[in-house]
Write a protein that binds this DNA or RNA. Sequence first.
DNA 1: ACAATATGACTGACCAGTCAGTATAATTAA
DNA 2: TTAATTATACTGACTGGTCAGTCATATTGT
Lengths: 187, 187
Amino acid sequence: MELHDNKKREMILNSALELFSKRPFHRVTMEDIANKADVAKGTVYYHFDSKNKLFEYLITDGLNSIRSRLDTGLKGDDPVEDLRCFIESFLNCFIGEQDFFSVLQYEELKDPGDIRTKYRKKNRDYCESLTKILDDGMRMGKFRKDIEPNVLARMIIGMIKSVKNTDHKDVSSLINDMILNGITKGG
Amino acid sequence: MELHDNKKREMILNSALELFSKRPFHRVTMEDIANKADVAKGTVYYHFDSKNKLFEYLITDGLNSIRSRLDTGLKGDDPVEDLRCFIESFLNCFIGEQDFFSVLQYEELKDPGDIRTKYRKKNRDYCESLTKILDDGMRMGKFRKDIEPNVLARMIIGMIKSVKNTDHKDVSSLINDMILNGITKGG
DNA sequence: ACAATATGACTGACCAGTCAGTATAATTAA
DNA sequence: TTAATTATACTGACTGGTCAGTCATATTGT
């Protein structure tokens, strides 16, 4: 019976995400957000305690949705297949949620002494999921063992995140093949 | 002893680099920099016109030194060997100049409407150098052809940049081998 | 009526950049 | 040699603008 169609709250979140993805935290003002959401500044403060809290919400909310998307489809018994699946999901997330990943990129930068630190761990969650896949694969003799799984995981994520505007019909399987077989064969 | 030794200027640059590598641009104040350099705020402004100009100097100066380090050693006639050489140089730069690369990472983020845009291009220079190596290699049949050389270049850079605190004795050749042969063989 | 929601003028902290002045070294004048 | 002049390096109190957050008031919904 109480409230809400939450229309304005949604507008605020959308506007904030878009602005934070285009400029760093301190170059986005609460008034920018309010204006873009077509709402008064006070309204933003009605829905969110502070600029930090608003930012915090965007990050945790986004991470949660991405995590659940990344976890679906993993079987746990076939590392090669799980790797393929993970890469595909991650690439879909990455391309589908570009604004969010831009915000996350700011978030990932060092800035001890405020909210950020607190998310570092959660932030790495998808790395841990991938780390596990790689670790399993190494123990089963499917992947090379001369590198730490978590280092390799981060490298793979870093690699995927660097992909921009390619029109290859299936980037996902291309990347998968490159990771598995390198650049000297295939093509 | 005071005139024309650039001691303070150096101190300012060092302090600024360190601070900018730890916090985003707008969370570093000119007074922070002055304090760290053990100098008055006015002194910073004596040596640099503005905060932007100081930042600008750090970036261009760092990029110039890195570029020249990356170009030495390339032969131009053997893509496989040039790739190996590039990876080694880049990794050395990346590990040796971590503060600078952190600053650069901020720099690489979108923030249209100030200095940043202007450096985008220069910023990518080392990518172009790598792109050329890959392009040559593809034309010579050494590397797979089913991916744009510039996309691949960015992926490789992204991969290397994701390497953190690994104590493998020769990370450089490990990475080189993984890029060439993938993760299913080797180790 | 009453609570929930929304408003925007206002406040106070913070910070980039200024400026009037000091100090020290280099140059010239006596 | 030393006094006077100028150039260079440095200082920190101050200013003007910006922006997160507040609050008294208005509007809407039930």
